[in-house]
Design a binder for these strands. Sequence first.
DNA 1: GCCTTTTATGGTAGCGCTGTCATTATTCTT
DNA 2: AAGAATAATGACAGCGCTACCATAAAAGGC
Lengths: 341, 341
Amino acid sequence: MPRKRNTRRSPDMPTLADVARLAGVSEITASRVVRAQGPIADPTRLRVLSAIAALGYIPNRAAGSLASAGSTLMSVLLPSLSNIVFPDVLRGIHTALTQTAFQPVIGVTDYDPLIEERILISFLSWQPAAVILAGLHHTPVARRYLEQGRFRVAELMDIDGDPVDIAVGMSHRQAGYETGRHLIQRGYRRFGYARHNILTDDRASARYEGLCTSLQEAGLSLIAEHRYPGPSSTKAGRDTLEILLSAHSELDVVIFPNDDMAMGGIFHCMYAGITVREQLGIFGFNGLDIGQAMPMPLSTILSKRFLIGKTAAEKLLESRERPPEKTIINTGFDIIEGATA
Amino acid sequence: MPRKRNTRRSPDMPTLADVARLAGVSEITASRVVRAQGPIADPTRLRVLSAIAALGYIPNRAAGSLASAGSTLMSVLLPSLSNIVFPDVLRGIHTALTQTAFQPVIGVTDYDPLIEERILISFLSWQPAAVILAGLHHTPVARRYLEQGRFRVAELMDIDGDPVDIAVGMSHRQAGYETGRHLIQRGYRRFGYARHNILTDDRASARYEGLCTSLQEAGLSLIAEHRYPGPSSTKAGRDTLEILLSAHSELDVVIFPNDDMAMGGIFHCMYAGITVREQLGIFGFNGLDIGQAMPMPLSTILSKRFLIGKTAAEKLLESRERPPEKTIINTGFDIIEGATA
DNA sequence: GCCTTTTATGGTAGCGCTGTCATTATTCTT
DNA sequence: AAGAATAATGACAGCGCTACCATAAAAGGC
């Protein structure tokens, strides 16, 4: 006795077999039409297409993935969504992926390599075509999976290190270094530094180190730094500057780990009646729109976040197979002179 | 002659069968351990678990989805990632989903219902457990798919309408209305309005309408409005206010569709030497951190974006089946009096 | 102690699709 | 015109997993 069919299926979800039957072709031909793959005669294609439309057929990607041992998903692992940087990167990725069959699946790691590892493993169970992550530091387990997998890998933001496959980003160490050189050249000598409590933000740390190097080369060093006991925010920047200045009123410039905090610094100056640039220089990082729309544009470094995401996704699409040699793409950065330092 | 096995598979990707063999149990038992489902004796579970660890087994979710006609994916369709609102919503969703087996898959519609429809269809091919989208307006085709599917649906941001399943958000019409009432009560009479070119931002339109209603009720009306010919940004707000004032210097308050643009308005005032609040009131929408960190906090409306995302995802997880009655959750909004209007 | 219920496990048959190989009809070479 | 290449289609066997049903052993009821 034949077993009852379709107990698990939605009652009227048509399958490829239904489409093929209606179009009077074999399943595989219908499949080829759906995937636009292989040679199909125009009249046949049209018959299949109209059968698809008539039935409201939606392909089952789980079955497709299973049969072909691959998917059109692209796993994206980002440290955070609160930091505008990563939505920008995501926008770049998304832009490159529209008009392709690929879809981003996102995960947020909270800057924690162990969470990154966990999410990575769970993403791999979808057999993604590619994995995009931030930075070059991962757990050994994660690194092993990335190296052994049959998917492309892009590591974003940072290029100071050895990527698994592709790295797209800029040298944060160099950005920090150039920041120091620039500010010294503009006459600043008494440097303060604001930080936040995200210790695993490797990029911020690299910029900090680069800055210290350039100060050292000039026979200078940081006079003061303060680590705000919370995540980055405008208010964090404002409070941090107040604390820095209360202990070190001699500072003539303060560098912030990002524009959000730098804006907070400027707001503190406005509030406290400090003339920005003359009395105190303020320098940020990222080059956000809002900082540039101020009457006195923020001095900062433009990181090309959208471009990083877009370039990475485009590069990943170039070939399904991982090429033998690794690729490092430096999207660079621009110093925005601005009016605050 | 037996066909060569595994031509499509990665050479050494272990399957459930390998795990079962190593643990000395049947496949289905191993499957139950992986899914933590059904009664399993402790020693058996341990044997399977150690086999999984020994082999580095990663389940194949495509196969699982196919067999069970369902997935642990949650499709999230957002209008934009440039507008901080949506990353915030996404953070809320993500927060609710961590520690569950569900993963968000995101798509960006650019505020275009047709793109929304296209992405929705492509997402449905993954048999998602739930679909989250913004707003209550979709194409008829999309609406039909949403209504007929066997998945939960949450429509976010807006509650002025008839949801498919769950709606979580606030009444934007009412927010606009209350804005008008509040500003009238504070003595403003000559209203200007700034807009952007995203015509399909239904929420912004609803607020606009609500505002007009309250003005009308008070015997007032908008004196001037200007639609910036580009997407929302701080610079857009700055330029728009300049244009508004050049033609209508009599305005005593200008309302912006969001805080980003309102900040731009404030920057214009700073630049042009206009005393905010005394000479000109500025009112925004969203209640962003940066506006509140200013020396003169922005007058605005706090929309609870994170809460909306989190509540929606939590609600969706409550039951796999769509309940007979629809749910509308009003997360409300707060008027932030601030110092700019 | 016999019967019922619960607990723990397994056999089997697909889920819907695509890779592989095979076949036939058509066009191109020279 | 014969052979070779190409275009267009199909048969079939799985991909790796889980729903369904069955079975056996242990626990509970009176």
